[in-house]
């Protein structure tokens, strides 16, 4: 994770950041589940599955958020050494890879996602939440959004000199 407080990025105020509140909801659900299990002696059927549902949403949104901030894990040793025109070539390669992966994810995932949505596919458990029906289409949406944002980032980086950052997450 980044060492610095997140003040240096203008994109920091993305509305997507609100999705991180779901993590607190998961904390509350889990505390409730453990109390229900040990103090009331009756575990819920829904706590684990609801946590799973919400976390899957957070995972997908987090990828789009990281893309908005152009922070996906990369090695910039060579990138930082080469002159600016070469960097643009590298940027173009990175864009192409991003489009292939996110595009493939969205385009070829669409039929499955659509089927899950229209049949309102459920998780097949006791509580049976519609996790596939929501998460499968959401993957398509997230991947498509990431592809679009990658294009925007590429164009924007071409207009102004991006700050060289050494930000990595571990």
């Amino acid at each position: 994770m980044s060492a610095e407080p997140d003040t240096h990025h203008q994109a920091g105020r993305s509305p997507l950041a609100w999705f991180s509140l779901l993590l607190l909801v998961i904390v509350v659900i889990t505390l409730y589940e453990v109390v229900a299990r040990y103090i009331f002696g009756s575990p819920t059927v829904w706590a684990n599955e609801l946590s799973l549902f919400l976390s899957a949403i957070v995972f997908l949104v987090s990828g789009v958020y990281a893309m908005q901030r152009d922070e996906h894990l990369r090695i910039s040793v060579i990138y930082d050494m080469v002159p600016r025109p070469v960097r643009r070539v590298f940027d173009a390669i990175a864009l192409l890879c991003t489009l292939v992966f996110c595009g493939g994810l969205a385009w070829f995932g669409f039929p499955t996602a659509w089927r899950a949505l229209i049949t309102w596919e459920r998780f097949g458990t006791a509580w049976n939440p519609p996790i596939p029906a929501v998460i499968k289409p959401l993957i398509v949406v997230a991947a498509a959004a990431m592809a679009l944002i990658a294009i925007v980032n590429f164009v924007r980086n071409g207009r102004r000199r991006p700050p060289v950052e050494d930000e990595r997450i571990t």
């Binding site: 996906h72 990369r74 590298f90 390669i93 990175a94 890879c97 292939v100 994810l105």
Partner: peptide
Amino acid sequence: LMAVGVPLAFAAGS
């Protein structure tokens, strides 16, 4: 791809 600074997720995925 990683050497030229492609994010690992997209290098592997693509």
